[in-house]
């Protein structure tokens, strides 16, 4: 299972970086979205895969059952998803404005601020 996930993460990273290197701004945004998914899977895999129950303490117990999954990577991923949702929504709005202001979505044409 780790192997399969590792391959998936690799493919996601490769696709994300390919998109990040394109010239269209929208493709770059898609690349960022893919990148955050790749990172989420990475956290999930690095946190240790375990076949087991949901990490809830059962009724009448005081501790987690030994077989249950580690809840912390899930909490991290959840937080990361929330943040990337907010960031992505903002980025899309910003790119829309940038497109209106500059009239282009080609990063090669966004050179105005790099020239002396």
């Amino acid at each position: 299972m780790e192997f399969l996930l590792a391959i998936t993460i690799g493919v996601l990273y490769a696709a994300a970086f390919y998109l990040l290197l394109r010239r269209g701004v929208v493709r770059i945004i898609l690349g960022i979205a893919l990148l955050s998914q790749a990172v989420n899977l990475l956290i999930f895999t690095a946190g240790g895969l375990r076949e087991g129950g949901v990490p809830f303490i059962a009724e009448g117990q005081t501790a987690l059952a030994a077989t249950s999954a580690d809840p912390l990577p899930q909490a991290l991923i959840l937080t990361a998803i929330v943040i990337s949702f907010g960031v992505l929504a903002f980025t899309l709005a910003m790119v829309h404005r940038a497109d209106q202001a500059t009239g282009t979505d080609d990063v090669d044409d966004l050179k105005g601020t790099d020239q002396t």
Partner: peptide, 13 residues
Amino acid sequence: GVTTLIVFSLGED
């Protein structure tokens, strides 16, 4: 609030 703010401003645009 945040979600409606972003969607509304994009949509009205």
